[in-house]
């Protein structure tokens, strides 16, 4: 599992690669820390290369959203495959995030 934070066009972009399972979640949480300081920027979670996400990953996503929202930042998800999107649909997360 590899998580990269980039700045593109004024947005903070997090790029996920591999499996975001419970085992990977603590490291990923560390990697996502820069997103805490997101004032003035929208956040894009790039899931193009994400193969798998468990509830631990969903919790991280929710954490990012809960942090960004009070600061007026939008959180976008991009490039998510159908299976993952299915999980989002199931859990109602699809209503919480904006998709690009």
């Amino acid at each position: 599992m590899k998580t990269t934070i980039q700045e593109q066009d004024g947005n903070l972009v997090a790029i996920f690669e591999g499996r975001l399972d419970t085992a990977a979640a603590p490291q990923c949480e560390q990697d996502l820390k820069p997103l805490n300081d997101c004032a003035g920027h929208d956040i894009v979670l790039d899931c193009t290369a994400l193969d798998y996400i468990s509830s631990s990953g969903l919790r991280l996503f929710l954490g990012v959203l809960k942090n960004a929202k009070p600061k007026g930042s939008h959180v976008f998800i991009t490039g998510m495959n159908a299976d993952l999107r299915n999980v989002f649909t199931m859990t109602g997360f699809i209503n919480l995030f904006e998709f690009k």
Partner: peptide
């Protein structure tokens, strides 16, 4: 409850729900 907003959603409790699903 999957219909709650982001602010209201608790962090946990998703696991068993997903298993059932």
């Amino acid at each position: 409850d999957t219909t709650l907003s982001a602010e209201e959603r608790p962090i946990g409790g998703l696991g068993i729900f997903l298993v059932r699903e």
